[in-house]
Design a protein around this nucleic acid. Structure first.
Lengths: 124, 124
DNA sequence: ATATTAATGATTATGGATTCTCAACAAGAT
DNA sequence: ATCTTGTTGAGAATCCATAATCATTAATAT
C-alpha cells in the first residue's frame, strides 16, 4: 500500500501552492524548508509518480530542465524570464494555428514560450 | 588561414540545400553520402564555427537536439513531427503576443512549436 | 615536390539532468 | 510495542548531447 510520508506531503503542498511551474531544483529547495534533509532522489521519484498518476503536467522548455504544474488547468502557455530562469504561466493562446500548418500535415498540439524579463527582475 | 576542405564543403552544401532545419545527426548522415568517413566531431566543430560566423541559426526544441538552419530568414516557427522527429519550417506567426504577457513583464521574443504528423508519416 | 600547420577522425571526456542501488528508516497493520 | 515492507537519502551510475585530445592527414604557400 502507498504510504503517506512527510516528504510526499511536502512535495504536494509546494506544488499545490505554487503559482508557476517548478523545476525539480526549485521544488527541492522549497520542499527542503518543510522537510530539511529531503533528497533529490525523492523529488524525482515523486514527480514521476505524480505525473503517472495524472496529478502533474510536465512543461518542457528548450534548454531548460522540465517544469511541473498541477494537471487539469485550462489551456495556457508560459513565459520564461531570461534573467532568473523562472517560468510563469500565461493565460490565453494566440488562437487557431491551422493556418500556419503546412498542407498535408496534421496539427495535434502546440507550445508557445514567451521570453523576456519578469516583473521581479525588472524591478530589481 | 582557414582551409577549404571536402568536409566543410559537404556540410555547407547539405545545409544550403536542406529545406528544413537539421540536427547534427541528420547532418552527419547527409554529409556522409558526400564524404564517407566524415566524423561527428567535424560536424560539431563546423556547426559551431558556422554559427559563430552568423551563417547558421540554431533552432531549439524541447527534449530534442538542436537543429540548424541558414541564418537570415524571415521570422518563422517550426513544426515537429512526433513520429519521425523531423522539424519543418512554418511561415507566419500568430501575431502580437503582448496581450498575453503578464502586466509588468517585458516581452522580448517568443518561440512557437507545432506538434503533429508530417505529410510523409501520414502517407506511410 | 616539399614543408607547414590547419583540419580531421577515433576516441575519450565533460556537463547536466535524471535514474538506480541499497542500507537505514519509518508508516501503518497487528 | 513490534513486525513488515514501502520510502528515503547519499552517492554511484546512466544517458545524451556536445566538447576536448591528439596522432594522422591533407590543403596551400613556397
Amino acid at each position: 500500500m502507498q504510504r503517506d510520508t512527510r516528504q510526499r506531503r511536502a512535495i504536494r503542498e509546494v506544488l499545490e501552492q505554487a503559482d508557476r511551474p517548478l523545476s525539480p531544483g526549485e521544488l527541492l529547495e522549497a520542499a527542503h524548508e518543510r522537510v530539511p534533509g529531503i533528497g533529490q532522489a525523492t523529488i524525482y521519484r515523486n514527480l514521476k509518480a505524480l505525473e503517472d498518476k495524472g496529478w502533474l503536467a510536465v512543461v518542457t522548455i528548450p534548454g531548460q530542465p522540465s517544469r511541473y504544474e498541477r494537471a487539469g488547468k485550462a489551456h495556457h502557455h508560459h513565459f520564461l524570464c531570461r534573467s532568473c530562469d523562472a517560468a510563469y504561466e500565461v493565460s490565453g493562446c494566440p488562437g487557431d494555428l491551422e493556418p500556419l500548418t503546412p498542407a498535408g500535415f496534421r496539427l495535434e498540439s502546440h507550445e508557445l514560450v514567451l521570453y523576456g524579463l519578469c516583473q521581479t527582475c525588472l524591478a530589481g
